[in-house]
């Protein structure tokens, strides 16, 4: 009994780890490959979550639609809508230098959050959306359904991983890295810097939107509190930098290892005296903040550093 409990605990960690891996892969395309700073991950995650939830739930009087579409269509819609929002944001803000882009992207994420909380005709406000369906719900019931979902989510993670790998090696990805490393020379070589940046931002946002959609389907319920910028934006940044920005494997390893640390420390903090339990999540946040400082100063390349292919056909590590 103890063992099955442990097994399903592991399953739940890996499901959340898969969602974080997607967010990290999306951020890796933006920051790791393109050098575009996005501090509004939570906003795009929320957009995707709400898009997918609204597309797939059954008709409801409390919010717009309920279009009753299949989950895959919902996820596709989440990707497209988040990508379009990202494209529009990038179109406006991409010329800004990194510090300013950080402020603008937080501002946009906050505006998206305010829209979600206030426009109840669209999102049912703070009451949230319930009855978000799971994919392949007919295959299994009860706890076994989590295993089906685990497989589903990791199929998507692996697909996105191969897509990102392909992007990294493609002429598009090489131009992008050239822009990241030296904007002037790339521009002198005839690359349209702004266009590449807008594309990289939109693609990254689309992946974050899919991650958001998946989280809505996993929890079957969605409310504005699910998109806490601390857990969605900060943690993803720490994961990517610790894992190795610029490296897709690093992004996944970073997401899984940080998420594992985050979850395992919860077990220990739950054994603290009761007056400390309520504060335990803050202790973990403090540790994440300190970990980020350590990584930035001592360990900037990450667990799996970026390794650009020397020759086109050389074996990659």
């Amino acid at each position: 009994m103890e063992l099955t409990g442990l097994f399903f605990y592991l399953v739940s960690i890996l499901i959340a780890g898969g969602i974080y891996s997607l967010l990290c892969l999306g951020l890796n395309i933006q920051w790791g490959m393109g050098g575009v700073f996005n501090a509004g991950i939570a906003g795009f995650f929320a957009t995707g979550a709400y898009a997918s939830a609204i597309l797939t739930t059954s008709t409801s009087a409390k919010h717009i639609g309920g279009f009753d579409l299949p989950v895959l269509a919902g996820l596709l819609g989440a990707g497209i809508i988040s990508g379009c929002v990202g494209w529009a944001v990038a179109k406006i803000c991409i010329r800004l230098k990194s510090d300013y882009l950080a402020m603008a992207s937080i501002g946009i994420a906050e505006i998206l959050r305010l829209v979600i909380v206030n426009e109840s005709w669209l999102t049912n406000g703070s009451l949230g959306l319930s009855g978000v369906p799971r994919p392949f719900a007919g295959l299994a019931s009860g706890r076994t359904a989590d295993i089906v979902f685990l497989v589903f989510i990791w199929v998507i993670v692996i697909a996105v991983f191969f897509f990102s790998q392909r992007l990294y090696d493609s002429p598009w990805g090489r131009s992008l890295r050239a822009i990241r490393d030296n904007e002037q020379s790339a521009s002198a070589a005839g690359k349209d810097v702004e266009k590449f940046r807008i594309q990289t931002f939109a693609i990254g946002c689309a992946i974050m939107g899919i991650a958001g959609g998946l989280s809505a389907h996993y929890f079957r319920f969605l409310s504005p509190s699910a998109t806490d910028p601390l857990l969605v934006t900060f943690l993803v940044w720490v994961m990517l930098i610790a894992g190795g920005s610029g490296n897709n494997r690093g992004a996944i390893v970073g997401a899984l290892s940080i998420w594992f640390l985050w979850s395992v420390t919860e077990i220990f903090t739950n054994r603290l005296p009761p007056e400390w339990i309520t504060r335990s999540s803050f202790v973990r946040m403090l540790l994440v903040g300190l970990l980020l400082q350590y990584v930035l100063q001592r360990f900037r390349a990450g667990i799996i550093p970026e390794k650009a292919p020397k020759l086109r056909y050389s074996e990659e590590e």
Partner: peptide, 16 residues
Amino acid sequence: IYTVISSFGVALIFRS
């Protein structure tokens, strides 16, 4: 930009 990222972390440290 690294200092900016670091200041995000410091914000988190202060708050927690």
